[in-house]
Design a binder for these strands. Structure first.
Lengths: 93, 93
DNA sequence: TTCATAGTTCAGTAATATTCGAACTATGAA
DNA sequence: TTCATAGTTCGAATATTACTGAACTATGAA
């Protein structure tokens, strides 16, 4: 196991290092399906621009995927990235 | 699995969300034993106060333990905290 | 004592992140 | 067209983190 700190890992941990973003991420994970941004907003009661910013950060970190369909933008977790973090942390201990 | 975002998880992810700290953490993990601060400093070539600051953050997040013995302060990873993160992330996907 | 070593705390500055109103883009319906 | 809905981008204020030289504490050796 290589156990090397890479910039990508830092970005992923950064994305999870904020309560609102962690809540967004877990809400998506619990849902087990893609959700439109508006449904996340209704759950977390955060202003639109703030939510958009957090979703963008999660997306750039590779933790969620986004897809536009008609008037909605659907977000979903990307399990591969999560697995990579699990693999990394499991290699530690 | 509860999959609830708690402040403690945020703190742990924050601690890992920085390249130097991730390097410190992995260096300790690879060592597989406690190391004095000076040995970490020799490896990472970071100024003393900066290293001290990062170690303090990792310690407050529960990711490492510290112990003074004579003139040295020994740091080691706390596997329980890492396991908790793994449990959390595994519950996602 | 005095000195050297190991590490931390202080304090000021620089850099990054967060927040969210206002303005914008995109899509579909009337 | 015109309007409403869904969401993003901009911009500027605020807040938080990061960095590190200087000064400090703690321990052991001479």
């Amino acid at each position: 196991m290589d156990l090397q700190a890479r910039e990508g890992h830092v970005e992923a941990f950064k994305a999870l290092a904020h309560l609102t973003r962690l809540q967004i991420f877990f809400f998506l994970a619990r849902a087990g399906r893609e959700l439109p941004a508006g449904e996340i907003q209704a759950e977390l009661e955060v202003p639109g621009p703030t939510l958009s910013h957090h979703l963008d950060l999660l997306r750039r970190a590779g933790l969620v995927a986004s897809r536009r369909e008609e008037r909605f933008v659907y977000y979903s977790v990307r399990p591969e990235t999560v697995s990579e973090l699990v693999r990394l942390l499991t290699a530690c201990c």
